[in-house]
Nucleic acid binder design. Sequence first.
DNA 1: TGCCAGGCCCTCTTTAGGGCCTT
Length: 240
Amino acid sequence: MAEPRCETFIFLDLEATGLPNVHPEIAEISLFAIHRFSLENPEKDESGTLQLPRVLDKLTLCMCPERDFTPKASEITGLSNQNLTNNCKPGFDRTVVKALQEFLKRQEAPICLVAHNGFDYDFPLLRTELQRLGADMPDGTLCLDTLPALKGLDKGHHHSTRASHSKKSYSLSNLYRQYFNDEPKAAHSAEGDVYTLVMVFLHRAQELLQCFATEAQSWDEIQPMYISTHRRRSSQGHND
DNA sequence: TGCCAGGCCCTCTTTAGGGCCTT
């Protein structure tokens, strides 16, 4: 089997109505598509500080879920059923799928989705929403989760030393603070978190690209978080 | 009233418990 390799990295983050225990629905999705070239040739300013690549495609969409936000989810995302309804946002429907698919079509294949804790949260939830609409990602799509990838890299580096570092937090915001000695911007907006994710990735890009073959999974291996059974009022699906 | 994740990893471990990480 050929080693997995991808040409475009799709950094993504979801804001949703809660954690997996409440069977959440997506309320905001943001994707930054960055070509391998820009990750291998990072841009820096005069002071040598890493910069977000100038050439990137972005897609950010808000959508009103049918399920209620948990109070905590509403608090940290700033999203609510009320403000999404006030802004007349439809739910995660076929127009979202279409926009997503057209966005991905612009990117050189194969593509790899990248998310922090993606294997346990973003990817399964996205699969649940797509599956409800009978949709899927493009063939050959790969996935990378920066959480286990970065833990694995650090573990490898400190293989023979005592592990006082092992207690350090690998939350996205703490990684950003650690790498850039600065507070993450716009935490818990989908776009803000994708920015933070890209910068964290860039800081370790060489290593992450090197371990890609062992850390990446096929999208086909991602199981849905849960099987969605409800039908949307706006859905064109048949009744049975 | 209960319902209310789960795979991974660490350690005071393996006859287990608990925290992390995502909203």
